[in-house]
């Protein structure tokens, strides 16, 4: 089963999140700049004389398509990297994806999502290592 994660996060956290995702082997992603607000409501900005309220705040949305079994770890990673504990940290949505097609090769489904050394490649490597009796993790590639 393929899933899509949409994570709406603070602009200033984008680099932290990107680094954390790379560390766990999430290779493919894209981002869009979005505006909006949730429970936080908005912020007060300074005008020429007096302040005014702005309620559509800039945020960044990460789009990540990945296999079902990687969702929990990825969500956890984003939450850890994106959180400040203050209102306005954002939201994560997870959706089912019907099909994925890689344009260059025509590959479909799981094959279209695979990259060298991505989260699944590492998983495979770890499983193989376990099955031949070596301590899991000893052959894990360095992140």
């Amino acid at each position: 089963m393929t899933k899509k994660i949409e994570a709406i996060v603070r602009e200033e956290k984008v680099n932290d999140i990107k680094d954390a995702l790379r560390e766990i082997g999430i290779v493919g992603m894209n981002v869009i700049e979005v505006r909006g607000h949730g429970r936080q409501g908005g912020i007060v900005l300074e005008g020429r004389a007096g302040t005014y309220q702005v309620d559509m705040l800039p945020r960044v949305q990460f789009n990540i398509v990945l296999s079902d079994h990687n969702v929990d770890k990825t969500v956890e990673t984003i939450c850890k990297a994106a959180g400040t504990g203050r209102p306005g940290d954002g939201l994560i949505f997870v959706y089912p994806v019907d099909e994925v097609i890689r344009i260059r090769t025509g590959e479909r489904g799981h094959a279209a999502l695979m990259y060298p050394d991505d989260i699944d490649a590492r998983r495979e490597a770890a499983l193989q290592a376990e099955s031949i009796g070596v301590m899991s993790g000893a052959l894990m590639p360095e992140p």
Partner: peptide
């Protein structure tokens, strides 16, 4: 100083 007393020193305020 006037904008600072309200909230923060506004750049648009200073140039105005």
């Amino acid at each position: 100083f006037l904008t600072w007393m309200d909230n923060k020193p506004s750049v648009l305020g200073i140039v105005t």
